[in-house]
Simulated assay, not measured.
Amino acid sequence: MALVPFLFGVAGREELPGVALVRLLGDLGLTPGAARSLLARMRRDGLLAATPRGRGADYRMAGPFLQAFRQIRDGARPAQPPWDGGFHALFYSVPEAHRAYRDRLRRAATLARYGLMQPGVLISPVDARDALAAELGAEPPAGTVLHGRVELDLADAVAVARRAWELPVLERRYRDHAARLTAAVRAAPDPPGPSPEGLAAYTALFGGALVDTLRTPPRLPAELLPDGWPLPALLEAVGAAARHFGPPVARYVGEVVAASR
């Protein structure tokens, strides 16, 4: 699923023709049928919206993916507020008969960057209930979804944040991504030209780096992060790699989009 927002990012557009997306996903190893199924699933999940055009459709990003796309594009990360003593909490209990809703709730909460404090309790540094409500609609009659606040002292909050957002795992990944991207720029002073192979190599280079940058809540207080938190260094490495390798890839994607009009 991450391939689609990545392609929007390479194109620098919030809307792309379906024909172009299917071809570009084909360059990345998906069959046309698999590419169309992926786009349809993302529409059902509210991550893409479509506008009919001729015999096909134009797709535009929506929901949390659109917010994440704009955040990466604009290089904006909201300021980190000081620790105020608590997390916004979402308490849920949804019976098995409404399993589909429960799965949608968990997925929407993950995209909104809630962390799992314990079964049935999701936490966030900000109150994102409006975003969740927009994604989910009304809760099922037999289910319970409540919003509240969990107060913790700083030491306990640090421990909870480490578990809820897997901060030690992300810390290692951020350092590995940054080192890999920096080494790639040094190893290839002349980036490859525009081509399907260049797009595939560019996608493989970034791997999960861009997805992982979005896994830390953007307003998690600095007091809750590990010392020497490497996300700023990773964002610098991502920017340097994009400036070095990106222009030929963007040119190729632009040619595919233009040919699909």
Rank of each mutant, 00 (worst) to 15 (best):
P232V: 12
P230A: 13
R186C: 01
L116K: 09
Y174C: 11
P64S: 10
L21V: 02
A164M: 08
M42K: 12
E255F: 00
A97G: 15
G143S: 15
V211C: 01
A142E: 14
Y174T: 09
S93R: 15
G207Y: 08
E223F: 07
A188C: 10
V257P: 04
A108D: 01
F6P: 07
G33N: 09
V257L: 11
P140R: 09
A133I: 01
R55P: 00
V4I: 12
D212Y: 03
S260C: 05
R13T: 06
V158A: 00
R60N: 00
P218N: 06
P119N: 10
A155D: 15
A76F: 15
G26H: 13
P221A: 06
V211S: 04
G254K: 05
L234A: 08
E197C: 10
V160S: 03
A138S: 14
Y114F: 15
L38R: 08
H147E: 12
G86W: 05
S260D: 05
R219K: 01
A50L: 13
S37A: 14
D127N: 15
G85N: 07
A89F: 02
I123D: 01
L154Q: 10
I72E: 14
G26P: 05
R13W: 02
A35W: 06
L7V: 06
V4H: 00
D84R: 14
V169W: 10
E139R: 11
L231C: 04
R41K: 13
A49F: 00
F8N: 00
L7D: 02
V10T: 12
F8V: 02
